[in-house]
């Protein structure tokens, strides 16, 4: 890959967005970063990965944390900032990668190599996907979807000025129900290639 390429993928729970993001990384032969970046951060900071997981992708709780002279004592905010710094460092090093979640579309918003994607889906399809993948019944799948999406939305909307899933905050918003995971990855690949062509 000649020019740097960064693809930030955000997604609703149950859309298979993780698989799409991974497929995109494979198609372009670039690194893929998701929750596992916490292991590397834990190594760098000499801290327990469990601590990082505990506070991962959570918004700051305003009732149990405070800010004094610009310093926040929220562990959630500290862990979020570790990840934002990690993403920025990767981007600044010139590396090409696909990043899943972590507000990357906002953290790297001024980066010229950035392409941002939000993947959504129809409720019935997402339910079916969660039931099959997680081997749970419809009620449990609905509860999981509600919980995860609520958490992702709260996390995103706390750290980013644009709203989670609002089309105005992304280059592409794609309803995966109409294409499925593989076709969606193909579609996004062609979109990214078009962008690369235009930027040449």
């Amino acid at each position: 890959m000649e020019k740097q390429l960064i693809i930030a993928v955000s997604r609703e729970y149950g859309t298979g967005g993780h698989r799409v993001a991974k497929a995109l990384a494979e198609k372009f032969g670039i690194n893929f970063y998701d929750r596992r970046m916490l292991e590397e951060i834990a190594d760098q900071k000499n801290m327990s990965v469990d601590t990082l997981h505990k506070y991962d992708e959570l918004p700051r709780n305003v009732f149990i944390s405070r800010t004094v002279r610009g310093m926040s004592n929220s562990p959630e905010e500290a862990v979020a900032n570790f990840q934002f710094d990690y993403i920025r460092e990767k981007a600044d090093s010139g590396e090409s990668f696909v990043i899943l979640g972590r507000c990357a579309e906002h953290v790297l918003k001024d980066h010229p190599a950035l392409i941002t994607v939000f993947i959504l889906g129809d409720k019935e399809d997402k339910l079916k996907y969660v039931e099959e993948r997680r081997r749970v019944n419809a009620q449990q799948a609905a509860a999981m979807m509600y919980r995860h999406d609520k958490k992702r939305k709260a996390y995103h909307n706390y750290y980013c000025p644009n709203k989670w899933g609002d089309a105005r905050g992304y280059d592409v918003t794609l309803n995966i129900s109409k294409l499925g995971v593989e076709k969606a990855a193909d579609f996004l690949e062609s979109y990214v290639r078009m962008r690369i062509e235009l930027n040449k």
Partner: peptide
Amino acid sequence: VVGTAAAAKAGHPI
């Protein structure tokens, strides 16, 4: 707040 924020920033969220 300042003490726990400094610790968190250094990789020790409390």
